[in-house]
Write a protein that binds this DNA or RNA. Structure first.
Lengths: 340, 340
DNA sequence: CTCCATTTACGTAACGTTTCGCTATTGAAC
DNA sequence: GTTCAATAGCGAAACGTTACGTAAATGGAG
């Protein structure tokens, strides 16, 4: 049915190898070039990717394993990533593992079997064990948002400067006179959790003081988790005068808890959230929040992977790239007089 | 490097065809079965999908073309769809076309060249012109959420009963005594827009009356669009006593406009939104809204495509499947005494 | 122990590319 | 009109499967 290179060869009277050369950007005599171009058009020839893949061992396909497609932070990264990769003729296979270790492992195996050329992973655990099959197969890997120290040197990663992000937010609150700053973090074992905690403590250290332990709540990066953590903070005898929440979903949950408790922001409590997404504009206008550069992250991941996929020579193979965040000042924080 | 079937044949002393037969579920003598299984394990044999695809002309891959990955309604459909397809060993290539006709067309061409076995499309226009390359290539297509009448019989589709959905919502408001019900729709040319408008008018007809034309606002299914449309409704001399907004993003935008106008829901205005997503739970608890069965849609799409991909015989090839919606009563509407 | 109907095994030819190692062609310089 | 680099073109052998058509092995019946 569909035309093959053989047909082109027959029609043009040229050899198979010549057609192949032309199609792959090689130079052929102008006369033959015309000949081939006409035949390609007339026969509606489209190269068979299967045969090409078989010969070259490349699928021009990359796999993406993420914990949750419903997460806007993630989809906004994927959008810009996919855009770039597709421009370079790479297809993106998305696997949602629903924050489940088994599904995550299965997804990687699935993708390795599909013979993707590269893998992008936002790991749900801290070991990175699920990546072993890809590592064994020699498939280049780029981690997103979360490092896995055990895989240092074996994979690339694109993360944000989490320490700095948390430091900036916390410092901002401290400078405004707050000293009882609640901190709502994700799961204790996760990279971003640890870094953000570190930044928070650094800021306190700058001000030569230490936060009460009870101000730091580990949660799980979900809306419900954020809600519960905020409730717990409010239930304490000494309520915090400000709260810093460290991801999008928990920010929503925490705000819900504040609304329920009828606490006015910023009059009764100051608030800094995380991740600037369109949505916030609608529901909580003017929240002060830490803005991660999702587009830049997506682009960076795509470019990093393309580099690994093409010139495997230039520079050190694997890199850790750290992007910086911004503190977007809204009107959800206020300056207080510290009662002395 | 990697083991091939030839290696298995050599190690076991069996023929190539026998190995192939076993791998494809054929019966071999128990003794040979053991032999092969051992060899497969020892050599870590994994079938080469490239070669397989070349022979069978199947990629075991499906393409998905959507207008916007950031849209939660869409991602929730994709999540359940991808789950099922992957279980059947199909990879899902996602192409976000950003509601852009050119990108949409390019995406389809890209996927056809990648030789996907099937295509899932949520069309951004009403012509379906972008699907031509897939149609030409004989690739089965399943439309999601939006029908294209011009393609009737050529593609399958999974939609919800939009007429009924709008009818229920509007009827509910009419029964509560409202007769000035604002309606915020999407782009005028789109399938869902037309159907939802139809349902709204049907409900009015049941009550033997007609809405004022100015109550019906066409917008564009974006948050900003919803915001503007709501503003426009509120700017009219006769303000509606209730509003029905017909998608998720516009619901957010409309609520924002209400908040800004300091209108209390439902005391000053009754409100029915669209699409029940986790998020609403947090930001506008207890909104009355039309709930579309995203999971069921995703499942249905996946199953429909799998049917087209496998037993191409059973039943009529292409089907239009209509799922029903639910009206989730919250507390954003109230019964009013119609001033007589 | 033979025979025959069933199973199971196998050799081989595709599938449509890319690439290696040559040979043929080209055209500028003499 | 030769000669010689340089450039283009070519034949054929892979890549690793599947599937067709036939050949061989099996084992119950006679």
């Amino acid at each position: 049915m569909a035309a093959t290179m053989k047909d082109i060869a027959r029609v043009t009277g040229l050899g198979l190898a010549t057609i192949s050369k032309y199609l792959n950007g090689g130079t052929v005599r102008p006369k033959n070039k015309k000949l081939i171009e006409n035949a390609v058009r007339d026969l509606r020839f489209v190269p068979n990717e299967f045969a090409r893949s078989l010969k070259t061992s490349q699928s021009r396909t990359v796999g993406v394993v993420i914990p949750e497609l419903g997460n806007q932070f993630i989809t906004s990264i994927i959008t810009s990533m996919e855009d770039i990769l597709r421009k370079h003729d790479y297809a993106v296979i998305v696997c949602d593992c629903r924050t489940d270790a088994k599904r995550e492992k299965d997804a990687v195996t699935f993708l390795v079997h599909k013979r993707v050329d590269g893998l992008i992973s936002m790991p749900t655990d801290t070991t990175g064990a699920h990546l072993q099959p890809a590592l064994d197969a020699g498939i280049p890997i780029v981690l997103v948002d979360r490092m896995l120290k055990s895989l240092n040197g074996l994979v690339s990663a694109v993360v944000v400067d989490n320490v700095d992000a948390a430091e900036k937010a916390t410092r901002f609150l401290l400078q405004s006179g707050h000293d009882e700053i609640g901190l709502i973090l994700g799961n204790e074992g996760i990279y971003t959790t640890q870094k953000r905690r570190e930044g928070y403590l650094n800021a306190y250290a700058e001000f030569h003081c230490k936060p009460r332990e009870e101000l730091i709540r580990f949660s799980d990066y979900t809306m419900d988790g954020g809600y519960a953590a905020m409730k717990a903070l409010l239930a304490q005898k000494t309520q915090p005068t400000a709260v810093f929440v460290t991801n999008f979903e928990m920010t929503l949950g925490a705000m819900l808890a504040l609304n329920e408790a009828q606490l006015k922001v910023p009059d009764q409590i100051s608030f800094i959230g995380f991740d600037k997404l369109d949505l916030f504009g609608a529901v909580f206008p003017n929240l002060t929040l830490v803005k991660q550069p999702q587009n830049a992250i997506g682009e960076c991941v795509a470019k990093q992977l393309l580099r690994l996929l093409t010139d495997a020579s230039s520079g050190p193979l694997h890199q850790i790239i750290t992007l910086s965040t911004q503190l977007n000042e809204g009107s959800s924080t206020r300056i207080i007089q510290k009662p002395q």
